[in-house]
Amino acid sequence: MSHPAHYREAHPFIFVMTHWINLIAMVALAFSGFYIHYPFFAGFMGVARGMHFFFMYVLLINLAVRIIAAFFVKSATRLGSREVDTDIKNWLPQKLNRHQLIPWIKYYIFLKKDHPIGAKYGVLQKIAYIATVPLTLAAAYTGFAIYAPVMDWAFFTAGTDAVGGPMNMRIIHYYLMWAFILFTAIHAYLANVEGFSPSRLIFAWKEEEGLQFDAEGKIVGGTEH
Protein backbone atom coordinates (compact mmCIF):
# COMPACT_ATOMS: atom_id res chain seq x y z
CA MET A 1 0.00 0.00 0.00
CA SER A 2 0.94 3.65 -0.06
CA HIS A 3 2.91 4.13 3.08
CA PRO A 4 4.83 7.41 3.30
CA ALA A 5 8.41 7.34 4.54
CA HIS A 6 8.77 8.38 8.20
CA TYR A 7 12.02 10.27 8.65
CA ARG A 8 13.42 11.81 11.82
CA GLU A 9 13.21 15.22 10.16
CA ALA A 10 9.43 15.01 10.60
CA HIS A 11 9.81 15.00 14.39
CA PRO A 12 13.15 16.43 15.58
CA PHE A 13 14.28 15.02 18.90
CA ILE A 14 13.05 17.97 20.99
CA PHE A 15 9.51 17.28 19.76
CA VAL A 16 9.86 13.60 20.58
CA MET A 17 10.65 14.80 24.10
CA THR A 18 7.82 17.33 24.32
CA HIS A 19 5.41 14.68 23.03
CA TRP A 20 6.56 12.24 25.72
CA ILE A 21 6.26 14.90 28.40
CA ASN A 22 2.77 15.80 27.20
CA LEU A 23 1.73 12.17 27.31
CA ILE A 24 3.10 11.53 30.78
CA ALA A 25 1.74 14.82 32.14
CA MET A 26 -1.71 14.24 30.67
CA VAL A 27 -1.93 10.68 31.97
CA ALA A 28 -0.84 11.88 35.42
CA LEU A 29 -3.27 14.80 35.31
CA ALA A 30 -6.20 12.70 34.13
CA PHE A 31 -5.55 10.01 36.71
CA SER A 32 -5.05 12.41 39.61
CA GLY A 33 -7.97 14.49 38.35
CA PHE A 34 -10.29 11.51 38.39
CA TYR A 35 -9.08 10.72 41.89
CA ILE A 36 -9.67 14.26 43.11
CA HIS A 37 -13.11 14.21 41.49
CA TYR A 38 -13.97 11.04 43.31
CA PRO A 39 -11.38 9.29 45.50
CA PHE A 40 -11.88 5.68 44.40
CA PHE A 41 -9.40 4.25 46.87
CA ALA A 42 -8.13 5.45 50.24
CA GLY A 43 -4.94 7.17 51.25
CA PHE A 44 -3.96 9.07 48.12
CA MET A 45 -5.57 12.52 48.20
CA GLY A 46 -2.50 14.48 49.30
CA VAL A 47 -0.38 12.72 46.67
CA ALA A 48 -3.07 13.09 43.99
CA ARG A 49 -3.33 16.82 44.57
CA GLY A 50 0.44 17.20 44.64
CA MET A 51 0.65 15.26 41.37
CA HIS A 52 -2.09 17.34 39.82
CA PHE A 53 -0.46 20.65 40.69
CA PHE A 54 3.05 19.48 39.73
CA PHE A 55 2.06 18.10 36.33
CA MET A 56 -0.10 21.13 35.65
CA TYR A 57 3.08 23.22 35.71
CA VAL A 58 4.94 20.56 33.71
CA LEU A 59 2.25 20.66 31.03
CA LEU A 60 2.16 24.44 30.85
CA ILE A 61 5.94 24.83 30.74
CA ASN A 62 6.10 22.08 28.12
CA LEU A 63 3.50 23.89 26.05
CA ALA A 64 5.52 27.09 26.24
CA VAL A 65 8.70 25.23 25.24
CA ARG A 66 6.91 23.55 22.33
CA ILE A 67 5.54 26.82 21.02
CA ILE A 68 8.83 28.70 21.37
CA ALA A 69 10.73 25.82 19.74
CA ALA A 70 8.38 25.99 16.75
CA PHE A 71 10.02 29.29 15.83
CA PHE A 72 13.61 28.04 16.15
CA VAL A 73 13.66 24.37 15.29
CA LYS A 74 13.51 23.17 11.72
CA SER A 75 11.38 20.19 10.78
CA ALA A 76 10.00 18.58 7.65
CA THR A 77 6.81 20.24 6.47
CA ARG A 78 5.53 17.49 4.23
CA LEU A 79 5.16 13.75 4.24
CA GLY A 80 8.04 11.47 3.33
CA SER A 81 10.65 14.19 3.00
CA ARG A 82 13.94 15.13 4.65
CA GLU A 83 13.64 18.71 3.46
CA VAL A 84 13.18 20.97 6.50
CA ASP A 85 11.82 24.44 7.18
CA THR A 86 11.03 26.37 10.36
CA ASP A 87 8.59 24.23 12.32
CA ILE A 88 5.98 26.99 12.69
CA LYS A 89 5.26 26.60 8.94
CA ASN A 90 3.57 23.33 9.87
CA TRP A 91 1.06 25.25 11.96
CA LEU A 92 0.17 27.91 9.42
CA PRO A 93 -1.90 27.34 6.27
CA GLN A 94 0.10 25.36 3.70
CA LYS A 95 -0.24 25.21 -0.03
CA LEU A 96 -0.45 21.41 -0.04
CA ASN A 97 -3.53 21.53 2.17
CA ARG A 98 -5.52 24.05 0.13
CA HIS A 99 -8.97 22.85 -0.96
CA GLN A 100 -8.45 19.58 0.87
CA LEU A 101 -10.84 19.87 3.84
CA ILE A 102 -13.81 18.30 2.02
CA PRO A 103 -11.71 15.50 0.43
CA TRP A 104 -10.33 14.62 3.89
CA ILE A 105 -13.78 14.42 5.40
CA LYS A 106 -14.96 12.33 2.45
CA TYR A 107 -11.95 10.05 2.85
CA TYR A 108 -12.63 9.49 6.54
CA ILE A 109 -16.29 8.70 5.99
CA PHE A 110 -15.46 6.31 3.11
CA LEU A 111 -16.90 8.51 0.36
CA LYS A 112 -13.53 8.85 -1.30
CA LYS A 113 -11.35 5.95 -2.28
CA ASP A 114 -7.90 7.50 -2.65
CA HIS A 115 -5.82 9.18 0.04
CA PRO A 116 -6.00 12.99 -0.20
CA ILE A 117 -2.78 14.84 -0.87
CA GLY A 118 -1.64 16.78 2.14
CA ALA A 119 1.19 18.45 3.99
CA LYS A 120 2.85 16.69 6.95
CA TYR A 121 -0.32 17.38 8.90
CA GLY A 122 -3.54 17.11 6.92
CA VAL A 123 -6.29 19.70 7.30
CA LEU A 124 -8.32 18.00 10.04
CA GLN A 125 -5.21 16.77 11.79
CA LYS A 126 -3.77 20.26 11.97
CA ILE A 127 -7.01 21.75 13.26
CA ALA A 128 -7.17 19.07 15.96
CA TYR A 129 -3.56 19.56 17.04
CA ILE A 130 -3.84 23.34 17.14
CA ALA A 131 -7.06 23.01 19.13
CA THR A 132 -5.11 21.33 21.93
CA VAL A 133 -3.44 24.69 22.68
CA PRO A 134 -6.63 26.60 23.59
CA LEU A 135 -7.90 23.41 25.19
CA THR A 136 -4.84 23.26 27.45
CA LEU A 137 -5.16 26.95 28.27
CA ALA A 138 -8.87 26.54 29.03
CA ALA A 139 -8.12 23.58 31.29
CA ALA A 140 -5.44 25.67 33.02
CA TYR A 141 -7.78 28.63 33.47
CA THR A 142 -10.66 26.58 34.82
CA GLY A 143 -8.24 24.64 37.01
CA PHE A 144 -6.67 27.76 38.51
CA ALA A 145 -10.16 29.16 39.07
CA ILE A 146 -10.83 26.33 41.54
CA TYR A 147 -7.27 26.22 42.95
CA ALA A 148 -7.40 27.73 46.45
CA PRO A 149 -4.21 29.86 46.35
CA VAL A 150 -5.30 31.86 43.30
CA MET A 151 -9.06 31.33 42.96
CA ASP A 152 -9.76 34.71 44.56
CA TRP A 153 -7.77 36.66 41.97
CA ALA A 154 -10.05 38.96 40.03
CA PHE A 155 -8.85 37.37 36.78
CA PHE A 156 -10.32 34.05 37.90
CA THR A 157 -13.34 35.26 39.90
CA ALA A 158 -14.53 37.10 36.79
CA GLY A 159 -14.75 33.75 35.00
CA THR A 160 -16.16 31.94 38.03
CA ASP A 161 -18.97 34.49 38.36
CA ALA A 162 -19.63 34.38 34.62
CA VAL A 163 -20.22 30.62 34.67
CA GLY A 164 -22.29 30.73 37.86
CA GLY A 165 -19.89 29.75 40.63
CA PRO A 166 -17.14 27.29 41.52
CA MET A 167 -19.36 24.21 41.10
CA ASN A 168 -19.99 25.02 37.45
CA MET A 169 -16.33 25.87 36.97
CA ARG A 170 -15.42 22.48 38.43
CA ILE A 171 -17.76 20.72 36.00
CA ILE A 172 -16.31 22.64 33.03
CA HIS A 173 -12.81 21.67 34.18
CA TYR A 174 -13.95 18.06 34.43
CA TYR A 175 -15.43 18.15 30.92
CA LEU A 176 -12.26 19.68 29.49
CA MET A 177 -10.43 16.60 30.74
CA TRP A 178 -12.95 14.46 28.88
CA ALA A 179 -12.32 16.59 25.80
CA PHE A 180 -8.62 15.70 26.16
CA ILE A 181 -9.45 12.04 26.58
CA LEU A 182 -11.58 12.10 23.43
CA PHE A 183 -8.86 13.95 21.54
CA THR A 184 -6.27 11.43 22.69
CA ALA A 185 -8.43 8.46 21.74
CA ILE A 186 -9.10 9.82 18.25
CA HIS A 187 -5.48 10.95 17.86
CA ALA A 188 -4.07 7.57 18.87
CA TYR A 189 -6.58 5.80 16.62
CA LEU A 190 -5.93 7.88 13.51
CA ALA A 191 -2.18 7.95 14.00
CA ASN A 192 -1.99 4.16 14.10
CA VAL A 193 -4.89 2.85 12.08
CA GLU A 194 -2.90 2.85 8.85
CA GLY A 195 0.24 1.41 10.43
CA PHE A 196 2.47 1.92 13.47
CA SER A 197 5.29 3.83 11.78
CA PRO A 198 4.09 7.21 13.16
CA SER A 199 4.22 5.80 16.70
CA ARG A 200 7.65 4.24 16.19
CA LEU A 201 8.91 7.62 15.04
CA ILE A 202 7.35 9.85 17.71
CA PHE A 203 8.04 7.53 20.64
CA ALA A 204 11.27 5.71 19.72
CA TRP A 205 12.55 8.15 17.06
CA LYS A 206 12.84 5.21 14.69
CA GLU A 207 12.80 5.87 10.95
CA GLU A 208 10.97 3.84 8.35
CA GLU A 209 11.30 3.89 4.57
CA GLY A 210 8.30 4.54 2.37
CA LEU A 211 7.03 6.84 -0.32
CA GLN A 212 8.62 10.25 -0.82
CA PHE A 213 6.68 13.30 -1.96
CA ASP A 214 7.60 16.56 -3.67
CA ALA A 215 6.30 20.03 -2.88
CA GLU A 216 3.29 19.45 -5.17
CA GLY A 217 2.32 16.29 -3.34
CA LYS A 218 3.49 14.04 -6.16
CA ILE A 219 5.19 10.78 -5.37
CA VAL A 220 8.80 11.18 -6.43
CA GLY A 221 10.39 8.02 -5.14
CA GLY A 222 10.85 5.82 -2.18
CA THR A 223 9.88 2.27 -1.85
CA GLU A 224 6.71 0.49 -1.00
CA HIS A 225 7.19 -2.02 1.72
Binding site: M1, H99, I102, P103, H115, A185, I186, V193, E194, G195
Partner: peptide, 27 residues
Protein backbone atom coordinates in the same frame (compact mmCIF):
# COMPACT_ATOMS: atom_id res chain seq x y z
CA UNK B 1 -13.95 4.55 16.54
CA UNK B 2 -14.51 0.78 16.59
CA UNK B 3 -17.05 1.05 13.76
CA UNK B 4 -14.67 3.28 11.81
CA UNK B 5 -11.85 0.79 12.42
CA UNK B 6 -14.00 -1.99 10.99
CA UNK B 7 -14.60 0.23 7.96
CA UNK B 8 -10.88 0.83 7.57
CA UNK B 9 -10.29 -2.90 7.75
CA UNK B 10 -13.05 -3.64 5.23
CA UNK B 11 -11.66 -1.10 2.76
CA UNK B 12 -8.17 -2.50 3.17
CA UNK B 13 -6.70 0.77 4.45
CA UNK B 14 -5.10 -0.58 7.57
CA UNK B 15 -1.84 -1.37 5.87
CA UNK B 16 -0.61 2.06 4.95
CA UNK B 17 -3.91 3.61 3.93
CA UNK B 18 -5.44 3.91 0.48
CA UNK B 19 -3.26 4.85 -2.53
CA UNK B 20 -2.62 8.60 -2.79
CA UNK B 21 -4.61 10.64 -5.25
CA UNK B 22 -2.56 11.86 -8.20
CA UNK B 23 -4.02 15.32 -8.05
CA UNK B 24 -6.27 17.25 -5.67
CA UNK B 25 -9.97 16.90 -6.48
CA UNK B 26 -10.21 20.67 -6.72
CA UNK B 27 -7.45 20.85 -9.33
Amino acid sequence: LVAHGLGMKATGRMDGGAPYEEMKEHD
